[in-house]
Design a protein around this nucleic acid. Structure first.
Lengths: 196, 196
DNA sequence: TTCCTTCCTTGACACGGTGTAAAGTTGACA
DNA sequence: TGTCAACTTTACACCGTGTCAAGGAAGGAA
């Protein structure tokens, strides 16, 4: 796991990550990744069968390094529904910028490659489960708007917290990360919680 | 302009449109479009310098045929701010599914081609102006939440009404078009309008 | 030492899609 | 009859992905 000199596979994953962070999605070719890793292009194919699998592996590597599970799990310890909602939004909302490069690359291949679609869909399903749990907790507290079924509420929260919305607000509209998180928290409450 | 037998250029645009409606984005190749139009691949290049320009031209053609300007303009005639907000959401929200095929194709090329990015950005800017006008009308009526500046409110409404959000709710979550429009209207009010 | 194995390199190539180039066809118009 | 414009046909260059085969370097076992 924590060997001193990184093996080739890890070097490739690190390089992919770095390149996707700095340049945008489709500009990252297999040869670029190989060069960055100081390895031949064929060595990359020795470890990953194709580009899509490499990107998917990179997201898994990122999750591992960044401990995405641990972060999202933290929101589970909140007692009240409202606290749980806030904690989840904070955890996920602050995770987005860290994975955005890789996410955007994977997102860009969605309609080109079914495996990419599947991989992204799986990851978003995990986020959806977090939304569902938050909605459930709100409902248990009797705080969910009566005109909203749990599933619809989950759909809305999930959509609100999409990577695309984060990108639009922070990149296109120039919001700071903090402004984004605060706005999402406020919006989620207005969207889901009944008036006090 | 309105000749009886459609010229080649129009046939190509119609074919592009049709193909983008049925199949998904990147699967539509120049040769597919040519075949669908009953024309040689080179004839396509005779009318459009490259794929991106063809896609952009197709969106403009669609706008013309569907009278997008006229539709969005209708919301301008509403008297109250609330009516204007509703009318705009209805007009734009119901326009999305009609242009989605072409929009998705253009969207998919965004980070591959700067011209596509530019074209899409221009179109979204028009939508943003609609949002801005609705927010302004609300504010003039004294209905805009006091904790929201006009620009932030515009950003939020614009983000809420993004094509991606429409896709996620209708495609991924399976909402009907009507449910989508109703939810967006309700949400926009909760987001922007101060409590009565 | 020699041999074997594993990981990696080098160089070549097939494939598919975009875009270019050039010569030939067709039909309208004068 | 000639000319012009629109379109076809064929061929090709380019680029990125993915495949294939031969060979080299390092390390362990005999």
């Amino acid at each position: 796991m924590s060997s001193h000199k990184p093996d080739t596979r890890t070097k490739i994953l690190e390089s992919t990550w770095k390149l996707l962070e700095t340049t945008t999605g489709d500009d990252v070719r297999m040869s670029d990744i190989a060069k960055q890793a100081g390895v031949s292009r064929q060595a990359v194919y020795l470890h990953f069968p194709n580009r899509v699998d490499l990107l998917i592996a990179t997201t898994r590597y990122l999750d591992e390094v960044k401990d995405s599970d641990g972060r999202l799990a933290a929101s589970r310890s909140a007692t009240t529904g409202l606290a749980r909602l806030d904690a989840f939004i904070e955890a996920w909302g602050n995770y987005i910028p860290e994975i955005f490069g890789v996410a955007a690359a994977l997102l860009a291949m969605q309609d080109k490659d079914p495996a990419a679609k599947e991989a992204w869909s799986n990851r978003m399903q995990a986020v959806r489960e977090g939304c569902e749990a938050a909605v459930k907790a709100l409902d248990r507290d009797g705080q969910l708007r009566p005109d909203l079924e749990r599933e619809k509420a989950t759909d809305l929260l999930w959509t609100l917290l999409s990577v695309h919305n984060w990108e639009q607000l922070t990149n296109a509209c120039g919001w700071t990360q903090d402004a984004y998180v605060d706005a999402m928290k406020a919006l989620a409450r207005r969207m889901l919680v009944c008036e006090t």
